[in-house]
Simulated scan of single mutants.
Amino acid sequence: MATPGFIRELRGAIGHDLLFLPGVSAVVLDDGGRVLLGRRADDGRWSLIGGIPEPGEQPADTAVREVFEETAVHCVPERVLLVQTLEPVRYPNGDNCQYLDICLRCRAVGGEARVNDDESLDVGWFAPDALPPLREFALTRIALATADRPTWFAPPGTTGHDSRAGASRP
């Protein structure tokens, strides 16, 4: 994920200190129930599409923008799947971040899936039973998107880092 300009400006002031940021991820499904994934340029792994909202941008707008920017697919957000604070991350450059992920289920409504920017090496549609190797982060969100389950969030008093969303649903 490319670092937005406003984050680079903040880093100029705070250095590598922990920065708490919003993030939006999208599980995009087509009419056949396939999941849209991108193979990331930074680590070569398949992943859901997502990114950081611009200041003042609503999460649904972030999902629509990021999906189009990275894959050329137009989508419509349908519902919130999950709200979760993730474990802190230290990037190779020394930056420390922690994200609050808002994951949205989205429906593809147009466009043809292709690499549309420099953040992806490949883009593709996958049947839920034929997914490439994915991190638990993506698998959990795909499971929520393909099931009729309520929005997941960590119950009060828990750390909220349990990536097995649904293991302790409220």
Rank of each mutant, 00 (worst) to 15 (best):
V123K: 01
E70G: 05
D95L: 11
D118V: 09
V67A: 03
D43Q: 05
Q98I: 04
V115Q: 00
A113G: 01
G94S: 13
I52D: 02
G33F: 09
Y91N: 08
Q84Y: 06
P55C: 11
L139W: 05
A108Y: 01
D118R: 06
G160I: 11
A147E: 15
V76K: 11
G157R: 08
F68E: 06
R114S: 03
E87R: 15
L82P: 00
F68Q: 07
L121I: 15
D148A: 15
P150N: 14
S25N: 11
A63R: 07
P156T: 03
A41G: 00
D95Y: 10
V24Y: 03
L48Q: 08
W125G: 15
V64R: 11
P156A: 11
A147G: 13
V27I: 05
L104E: 05
Q58C: 07
T62I: 04
Y99C: 04
T146E: 10
G160V: 11
L134D: 12
W152I: 07
P156L: 13
R40V: 00
Q58M: 14
L121F: 11
A147N: 14
A108F: 01
Y91A: 12
R90Q: 14
V73Q: 09
A130L: 06
E54G: 12
D117Y: 06
P150T: 13
T146G: 08
N96Y: 03
A41R: 10
Y99W: 06
Y91G: 02
P77K: 07
T151C: 14
E54I: 13
G111W: 02
R141N: 14
V24P: 01
I52R: 08
L81G: 01
A108G: 01
Y91F: 10
F153T: 03
I142D: 07
D61T: 10
V24E: 06
V24Q: 02
V80C: 13
P77Q: 10
D30G: 12
D118Y: 07
I49V: 15
C97L: 07
S47F: 09
L104F: 13
D42H: 13
A108L: 03
T159P: 06
L86S: 10
L144T: 00
R65T: 05
L81C: 03
N96F: 00
I49H: 04
R90D: 11
A130C: 02
G44C: 12
E136N: 06
L121M: 09
G124F: 09
L104I: 05
